[in-house]
Design a protein around this nucleic acid. Structure first.
Lengths: 251, 251
DNA sequence: GAGCCACCTTGATACGGATCAAGCTGGCAG
DNA sequence: CTGCCAGCTTGATCCGTATCAAGGTGGCTC
């Protein structure tokens, strides 16, 4: 049996010291039966940067796990104003058992590889395998918490705080994928354009650019090229987010 | 066996014509075993307006369903800026299986009655009763969708659109609790103070007040007292939200 | 190497909502 | 009835971000 990275998030690897995300095969929680079931109904799809995965309202007959690349969920108002409402990084889950159409636009923001499960078989699996259902519930609850933290950012933070918060979130996710401590995540590539960052944060791309320049000018970050960020003092960045020092913004 | 309104949301009453929310006893989906299990571990708590249910970070040893009244989930930045991240109306669910502490401040915004289940027994029930786990997953997915719609409001709408959206959401929830069609929900009481509305929408209470006055001046709504809203033309209100005519904002 | 284009930066100005301030309203205690 | 106070309204002004505009940069194709 070939165990792949793509269905990892269906297990709670976070609490499993012997199971770094890229090597679930050694996880003591693995249940071979489940894996075999998942393996038997999965297939792959890949997308190019900018390519839509699905538009809001269109039928979506699979659920999927992100293997590599970045995808976004977004909503658009009549007049074109766009808000990103979800950011899918490797190991994130896409889709909803029990619903036939996509509620949001899903777009590949880079080269994107999805590991898909047809909805019918996946739902059957869910019904017959409580441990998978339970893991999916936990993942959904995590996403809900992330969405709520994001709401604080959108509703109450200044542009500067928004940028600092986004950089912190990306650094921490990057670090956690590589099993580093958060403070080690002090250099990383921005996976998003300025425009995508603006859509994430409810700003314009000009404001994003200005605030990044301001953080650079103030020595909070260094830029190498347009996309590579170096954070000399991670605590200084966190202090710019407006959160408590022990900030709970883990996404 | 005594069937109560409070654990109703653990069933999907929405798709069950014979099961209006207040009379689940006749629902064809009811599984007596589950009800008995839920009944056997539940108890009640009540709170006064303004009283905290739990502060973020404090231990929370129960999950609960709102029987009556309004509660809010909110987050506060160091300097006091507050954002509401969840609004709990009757039949909504509070708490998270598998976590021992509250992630957000929970506050009673009116007289509030909760139907509580101690976390331990509830989690055991969840493990042993897949249908309850599945229902909880669906509810969580609904909440996640609501949070994402809310993110669009916070990130991209003007103050006027925010107010119109909130009024629409409240009218529709009110209507759905009473099994009316959405357009009938054209008169209702605001369950929130101006300040709570501001915390919901990421505005100040002055701006909320001004925009409500503006909608009144423009004939979109009528006010009877400070809290009772009459909507003469529901489509006119929806047109103010900035959403597509067939707007997806069902919370 | 030349030219192009997506992406980004910076500047000038406009405007929506925050802030500060003053007063109104209605319900309740005494 | 009187006074009080939480909740609300309205006005004047300020500030942060949007908007409009111009130009820079780097990576790609030919």
């Amino acid at each position: 049996m070939n165990i792949r990275m793509d269905d990892l998030r269906l297990h709670d690897h976070r609490n499993c010291a012997s199971c770094p995300i890229r090597h679930r095969a050694v996880c003591s929680k693995c249940e071979p039966d489940e894996l075999e079931l998942l393996d038997s109904i999965k297939y792959y799809r890949s997308y190019d940067p900018g390519q839509p995965v699905v538009w809001a309202g269109d039928p979506l007959d699979f659920v999927a796990s992100v293997v590599s690349g970045i995808a976004t969920l977004s909503q658009t108002l009549e007049d074109g104003r766009t808000q990103m409402v979800g950011l899918l990084l490797p190991s994130d889950f896409l889709g909803r058992p029990g619903r036939a159409t996509a509620p949001y636009d899903v777009t590949a923001n880079s080269k994107l590889l999805l590991c898909c499960f047809r909805r019918g078989p996946f739902e059957r699996l869910l019904r017959e395998t409580p441990s998978i259902a339970q893991r999916l519930l936990e993942m959904t609850l995590d996403e809900l918490d992330a969405a709520r933290d994001w709401m604080l950012i959108l509703g109450r933070k200044t542009a500067r705080e928004k940028i600092a918060s986004l950089l912190t979130i990306i650094a921490q996710r990057e670090a956690s994928l590589q099993k580093l401590s958060p403070t080690d995540g002090s250099a990383f590539d921005l996976p998003l354009t300025r425009e995508a960052m603006a859509d994430y944060l409810g700003l314009t791309l000009e404001t994003v650019s200005r605030q990044i320049s301001a953080l650079k000018r103030d020595g909070i970050i260094r830029l190498e090229g347009k996309r590579h960020i170096v954070v000399p003092d991670f605590d200084a960045l966190i202090a710019e987010t407006g959160d408590d020092a022990d900030g709970g913004l883990l996404v």
